[in-house]
Nucleic acid binder design. Structure first.
Lengths: 387, 387
DNA sequence: CTTATTATGTTACGCACCTTAACAAACAAA
DNA sequence: TTTGTTTGTTAAGGTGCGTAACATAATAAG
């Protein structure tokens, strides 16, 4: 193991700096011709020639064709090769375990979804068991053409901290009750909301943005913050734990621990809805999906509930703006990505805060697994050619 | 002007990368011997020799003596030279305008304080006028040994944005009603609370920390956020504008615009204090300083007010933790740096949030000017030798 | 006081990595 | 087929750093 790591490091050291930056460009931006690489990186043709020769010899890049410009000789096009390897990304969610296998430059190699027998409120034994099975099944069908497995990323419905000492309190260790990570493969853990935020940055509404916040509103509520292009995790992995904002709060009102989490969750929303439901408005909706469907049809009582909830969401966004002023906030999750709430959220934020764009996510259920895939790929790339 | 900038850029390009990193190290860490520089930067003695020769020829560094180790030849000690130039930093505050002139490595060359005739609540004509006079007076007494003026930094009691389009709304433009910035000198503006936060990082309680929040509590309330070593400014320069946190907020309670700012300011605090002051407790304190002095002596009624205020501060800290979980929060400002509040703030934060260290600032009135000085020095250094 | 030891600084030389210049190859248009 | 254009390779040179060896300047030991 140690030996392999050493030889890996030697390979990295053997690459010239220009070769490493060529690799990074192909990693970030996908296939490119030599002239494209040269102009974006500011390298001369001879340098590119030797860089690509280096990478090609190691199998890190491969030629995938030639492109004819309007005039002159064809340009050769390259992409990452099998030597670069692949990553496995897993979203250990509350209802499904989603797995993606992909090359470092994000070409999908394999996809599978495992449905949990019941809705898991916390990271526990069943999720651990399912992850163990999915990892085993995935490793079993690994094809030679995929190259080495460079990283395994798992998105968790819990706080995640790197520091060993503080881990016990997060519950992230429950992952390992029935799952033993494969040997010799870097294991990366991240909170699922943070992953969804990163997915918005790489695939979604926040594409390429350096600063934004992502708020996920479903059964529970959470936020992922990206500032200066970097995910903000917080000392205890608690950045974005907006369920802990002070609530209720006012003159003579003492905030309660996790008071907002209890108030703004889907359960509490439906409870309030049932309590306020008029006698003559038919049966009260059984779940949030029904409530929003009714509101979408213009049902007055439903709309009133949705509007009040949206105003609460708006207050949450305002708290976020008051602290970091991200400029852009993306709403996601089963309830949050619903477009009906947008105008009311915007109204509240406009009234309370500085100018902020508010968008609804369009990524759907794959957001989290795409985010953890990106984390795994980034780690693998850094491992191969440094930062 | 263009020509000068060009020649400056040429000088920078002429330095080798090792010379630039030597300059940066002397800039950041102050005087150092060659062996020290070599080991911290991982450079060989010949490389250091030529680097220092380059910098010395340009006047960017100077030899300030020799240091004798326990054995062997003396080591030469260097620091930034006159060629590196100097910066002027100004804190345009509500009661005083404080000016510091310093070398890039923060050696004080000149210091002056101008007292405003009355307490200025907003950035207006009198402050602009005072800044104009202070800048003129400072430039007049510039000594040849200081070298060129590399940057002029001004800390403002308003939001600050770089973007030209959004400037009008901030009021930062009022600075220029009576003040015309000197030609050919980079002008750097920053919010005063953000400056104080940076001062905590370079001189105060948060020394060297990558992540922390600084909350200033005085007449008004504001926060400065540093994450990943970088100051978070926000899209509209509104990061840390915690007066805009949703307040009051609870079931059936509609947050008001800037509701928290009105509630938690010194004026409102004293109003509540007077209203709640018992008949038999003597005269109610006239201002916050008196209130905290009484509380310090153990006066029960005063302590009760201080405690309630501290709990409100604790809720604010919790809002900050809920969004970014900085791990460390520094309290400053005339009210905030008071140690009496600390235990109550900590109690509230412990109850509502994840583990967070809470400290009181010890920098006093010079915090802001030290912070803007650092910003100016950083900018000057980047100008000379790049990032 | 001389000699040995050690740390600092300089000179000589070589290597890694990149560039420009010149040339060869491959294509479209004339 | 010729011409002009773009792509890729080969050759030669320069920059920036390193190592090795030497010169210098201090302390410690005799």
């Amino acid at each position: 193991m140690k030996q392999k790591q050493l030889s890996e490091a030697d390979i990295r050291a053997a690459f010239t700096s220009s070769a490493r930056s060529v690799f990074r460009t192909l990693f970030q931006s996908g296939p490119a011709t030599r002239p494209q690489l040269g102009s974006t990186l500011g390298l001369s043709r001879p340098t590119l020639s030797s860089s690509i020769a280096e990478l090609f010899a190691a199998g890190y890049v491969e030629k995938i064709g030639e492109v004819q410009g309007p005039l002159g000789r064809k340009a050769a096009m390259y992409r990452l090769g099998p030597g670069a390897g692949h990553v496995v990304a897993i979203d250990a969610g509350s209802t499904h375990v989603r797995t993606r296998v992909a090359t470092l430059d994000r070409r999908l190699l394999h996809h599978r979804v495992y449905r949990l027998s019941s809705n898991q409120r916390h990271l526990g034994a069943e999720i651990s068991q399912a992850v163990a099975e999915e990892v085993e099944a995935t490793l079993a069908l690994t094809e030679p053409g995929w190259g080495k497995l460079r990283a395994l990323g798992i998105a968790l419905p819990s706080r995640v901290v790197a520091d060993n000492a503080a881990r016990a309190a997060t519950g992230q260790e429950n992952l390992f009750s029935h799952f033993t990570p494969p040997d010799g493969v870097p294991l990366l853990l991240e909170n699922n909301v943070n992953c969804a935020a990163l997915a918005e940055q790489s695939h979604g509404v926040a594409q390429g943005l350096e600063d934004f916040a992502y708020i996920q509103i479903g059964l529970k509520i959470g936020m992922g913050v990206v500032l200066g292009g970097r995910l903000i995790r917080g000392r205890s992995g608690a950045a974005g734990e907006i369920g802990h904002l002070p609530f209720p709060w006012g003159p003579g009102l003492r905030p309660q621990n996790a008071g907002l989490e209890d108030y703004v969750g889907a359960e509490a929303l439906m409870q309030r809805t049932r309590a306020a439901w008029p006698q003559d408005a038919g049966a009260a909706p059984a779940d949030a999906a029904t409530l929003f469907a009714l509101a979408g049809e213009g049902h007055a009582a439903a709309l009133a509930q949705v509007k009040r909830h949206a105003e609460d969401i708006g207050a949450i966004v305002s708290a976020c703006v008051g602290v970091i002023d991200p400029g852009i906030v993306v709403l996601g999750g089963g309830i949050g990505d619903n477009a009906i709430m947008l105008p009311y959220v915007r109204e509240t934020v406009d009234r309370l805060s500085y100018p902020t764009e508010i968008h609804a996510s369009s990524l759907g259920v794959d957001a989290t697994v795409l985010g953890i895939e990106k984390i795994a790929a980034d780690h693998a790339c850094e491992l191969l050619v440094g930062k």
